[in-house]
Computed example of a mutant assay.
Amino acid sequence: MIDPFTVKRIDSIMSGYIDQKIPGDLRVSVRLRHEIVDNQLTLAEERPTSKRNEWDRIDIVQFRLESKQWKVYAKNGDHRWTFVEMISPSADFERQLEQVEIDQAGLFWKS
């Protein structure tokens, strides 16, 4: 379980990240959402469906706090979360988010 102070700090980091990632004029057609459950933060992309006020969700990345280290997970071909070995665990959440943004292997941000 992530402590309340860390949850608040990460919510603030993610809000700033999302604001920079998706320009305001595009938010009617795409949005990013994050959710924290227990020791996991999942970042997802949402796009509107043909049904009014409904959005399709595609999970992008999951960060897990395990033994005081943030580990990064990506979905594999079976749609299961798999540990991304090329991103070493780190106590610094912002470092992990930066590594996902850089996305050297093309695991998270499809062109």
Rank of each mutant, 00 (worst) to 15 (best):
V61M: 07
I58P: 09
K8M: 12
W55N: 10
F5S: 07
G106H: 02
E85P: 02
T49E: 12
Y73F: 13
M1N: 10
V30I: 15
E66I: 07
R64I: 02
H34R: 02
K51E: 15
R31E: 04
K71P: 01
F108G: 09
T82R: 13
Q40R: 15
F93M: 03
W81V: 01
R80N: 11
P23V: 01
P4F: 02
L107I: 06
R47H: 12
W70M: 10
N53C: 14
Q20P: 00
S90N: 05
S88E: 10
S88I: 09
T42E: 04
A91H: 11
F5R: 09
F83P: 00
R80A: 05
R9Y: 05
F108E: 04
L107H: 04
P89V: 02
I60V: 14
L26K: 01
W109Y: 11
P4H: 03
V37H: 14
S15C: 09
D78Y: 06
D38Y: 12
P48D: 15
R27A: 14
T49D: 12
S67P: 15
R95N: 02
G106F: 05
V100Y: 00
Q40C: 11
T49W: 06
Q40N: 11
I13P: 00
M86H: 12
F63Q: 11
N39F: 07
I18N: 01
L32Y: 05
E101V: 03
Y17D: 00
E85V: 01
M1K: 06
A91C: 04
Q104F: 02
F108A: 07
E35T: 08
R80L: 04
T6E: 01
W55H: 08
S15D: 13
D103C: 01
K75Y: 07
L97Y: 00
S88W: 05
R31L: 14
M1C: 12
I13K: 03
T42R: 12
M86L: 09
R57T: 15
E46C: 13
S88H: 07
R95F: 06
L65S: 11
I18S: 01
N39Q: 12
I102A: 04
E98Y: 02
E98S: 12
K75F: 04
S12I: 08
